[in-house]
Amino acid sequence: MSVDNHEELQKFIDLNEHYRTYLDEHSNSRPDGRKFHENRSIQVLEKFLQHSYGSSMIRFGNTTVICSVTGQLAKPSLKSLRSGFIQTVVLLPRTQAWSTYGRRQQIINENLTLSQHLLDIIHKSKLINLEDLCIEEGKWVWCLQIDFQCLNNDGNLFDSCLFALNVALRHTYLPTIKIDIDTQKPLVYTKELKRFEYNQQQEPLCCTIAIYEHEQEYKYLIDPTLEEENIAKSILHYVLLKNDQICLIHKTSGTPFSIEKFHECYSLARQYIVGLRSNLINELIDND
């Protein structure tokens, strides 16, 4: 960094002051050149991992996430003999998770929270029917493991993970399982794959909004970078299904929010997610 670059120097010394100055001087522009409601470019790579049942790699700007779907055979719960299991895990880059000791526990907690949110969305949206994971009632079911490995976190991780999940499920194939008549043990035929059936009519997608407040005025930043998330008063997540039904609303701590502002943010989220769906559909058409 050159000391002669005043903007970079101010950003290095006080990030909050840098953003406050910039946003006050620009009515609808961010330091990276985007408008408030403009998202970054999206890149998609499907069937990324060779030894998983389904996978994808997604880039939202500089945020890069790999989604991997694997599975193992398990005994069903006694409470539901026809239901399988789903587990979700989100892993941040090792350098980000461990380089700053003071934030280590906070980052781990955020990891666990995001993992649980993603699992809740899968269940609430009925994206995956647990009974479809049944191999033989009362004996064998699938336990799906959905891992999200973040290679680089530059903000908007929630949107990236959920988008990556939808792409990975589109290309998920499970091996054929047959039960041996004599031993009653499952036989796995890895060369006989069948497409995993899930509820494509739901397709939950997320819109993350960073809420910046200055002098009692709100500014909503769509698809925020990590810097924008750090300077925001609060972060708002909307998860919508294909019929625009709200699956999840989550707001971090911050100033109180009126019903009118929630409606305003919903309109922004809906418009943003329509663009995401168009991007997802086009990508799937190109690769089918």
Rank of each mutant, 00 (worst) to 15 (best):
D182C: 08
A210T: 01
Y220C: 12
E213K: 06
R195V: 05
N28F: 15
L162T: 04
Q105G: 09
H18I: 08
R277I: 03
Q145T: 10
E229C: 08
I66N: 00
L276Y: 01
E131C: 08
E8W: 11
I246N: 12
Q245N: 14
T252G: 11
K35A: 15
P256G: 00
N129A: 13
P204V: 00
Q202N: 10
Y272V: 03
T208E: 11
K79P: 00
D154E: 13
R103E: 14
G54A: 06
D159T: 11
I209V: 13
F12G: 08
C207H: 03
N279Y: 10
E38L: 07
T183L: 11
T88H: 05
F60N: 04
S56G: 07
H18A: 14
T176N: 11
N153W: 01
L144E: 02
I179D: 15
A74F: 15
K194Y: 15
F48M: 09
A97Q: 14
H37I: 09
Y22D: 01
Q116V: 06
H263I: 10
M57T: 06
Y218K: 04
D244G: 05
L127Y: 06
T113K: 12
P93W: 04
I249M: 13
I211F: 08
Y272E: 10
E217N: 14
A232F: 03
Q106G: 09
T95N: 14
L226P: 00
Y173L: 06
Y198T: 05
E17T: 10
S27M: 08
D147C: 10
N156E: 08
E217L: 14
R170Y: 04
I135E: 13
S267F: 07
P224D: 05
I231H: 01
C150N: 11
I273P: 00
F257K: 01
W142K: 02
R94Y: 09
V89C: 07
N111D: 06
M57E: 10
Y238T: 00
C247W: 04
N282Y: 07
D132P: 07
V69Q: 00
R270E: 15
E110I: 09
Y173D: 09
P175E: 01
N166Y: 01
G138T: 05
Q43V: 03
L280K: 00
C67K: 05
D32F: 02
N111G: 13
W140H: 15
R195D: 08
